[in-house]
Design a protein around this nucleic acid. Structure first.
Length: 287
DNA sequence: CTTGAAATAT
DNA sequence: CATATTTCAA
């Protein structure tokens, strides 16, 4: 499990380079990040929370195993587990999956529905994928258009995105903070004043970095708990190796696999002083 | 207040 | 399904 991320993406893999990630049965397990969310009962913030149109139609598969019962001890059980779809946060991992799926599908079959199906990420709706796909395409265009003086052969789009994703992944520029004037100013290498709000990560992989559920009790604590789980987590894994030709079948190619197939323990913007923490597609104007 | 990112509407 | 617009959060 040491051959996950390889810097050897540049060489022409165009044809069908099955990277380790590729070979691995795509499976993403997203689980509840902050347990502290259970505490959001204190300030529901009527001004910005109340009108939450609950998805009336949505298969509620198995909303199981709350990681742990936080010692809430509140009589009224909060139904915020299944209903309530706050907002999808495309964490780098998810994006990675997305890109992988697109890469495997090819531009032809890279349509929202197929992508969504291939990703097999529960809770992910076609809408989400579509939106993201749109942005992804835009990002691609932008990059290609701006590559006037791009050195060397243009790398594959998917790679580019992945690369950028990786770039903004794990603490890219250490202590560079943006000042109010837009000036970059070096901060002391010790500035964890502002913990970001929420971040998705495999709870199972959480070991040392548990500082995350430190959330400032400032404004609404709404965005955090999503019900994203691996869709086929409980399915008898019988079919992996879903090829491009397989997706044309009648039944959704639910490629089930064991969770945590990835070694993705990369954190995105953990904690930084100013803003600019989770910048997925960099517009090129990144500091 | 600005900007970026997802949701929603066309 | 693709694109444009609006909404929401940081």
């Amino acid at each position: 499990m040491r051959e996950e991320v390889e810097p050897n993406w540049f060489p022409r893999w165009e044809d069908e380079l099955p990277s380790p990630e590729e070979l691995m049965p795509l499976s993403q397990s997203l689980i509840t990040p902050d347990l502290a969310l259970a505490f959001d009962i204190l300030t529901p913030n009527p001004s910005s929370e109340p009108p939450r149109p609950p998805p009336p139609d949505f298969d509620s598969p198995d909303l199981s195993a709350p990681p742990e019962s936080v010692s809430t001890g509140y009589a009224g059980e909060e139904p915020a587990r299944t209903l309530k779809r706050p907002r999808l946060v495309w964490t780098p991992q998810l994006h990675k999956r997305f890109v992988d799926a697109v890469a495997h599908l090819g531009i032809k079959n890279a349509v929202p529905k197929t992508i969504m199906q291939l990703m097999s990420v529960d809770g992910l709706t076609r809408e989400n994928v579509a939106s993201h796909l749109q942005k992804y395409r835009l990002y691609l265009k932008r990059m290609q258009g701006l590559s006037s003086s791009a050195a060397g052969p243009p790398m594959s789009a998917a790679d580019a995105a992945t690369e950028h994703l990786f770039s903004s992944n794990p603490i890219p520029h250490p202590f560079l903070c943006r000042d109010g004037s837009g000036q970059e100013t070096y901060m002391q290498f010790l500035a964890p004043p502002l913990l970001h709000q929420h971040q998705q990560m495999a709870a199972a992989s959480v070991q040392n970095q548990q500082y995350y559920h430190q959330r400032q009790i400032r404004h609404l604590g709404s965005t955090s708990d999503y019900g994203l789980f691996a869709r086929g987590a409980a399915q008898p894994l019988g079919l992996h190796r879903i090829g491009v030709s397989s997706i044309g079948m009648m039944q959704p190619p639910t490629m089930a696999s064991l969770p945590n197939s990835y070694g993705d323990d990369m954190d995105s913007g953990s904690g930084r002083g100013g803003r600019r923490v989770l910048t997925l597609f960099p517009t090129g104007s990144e500091d």
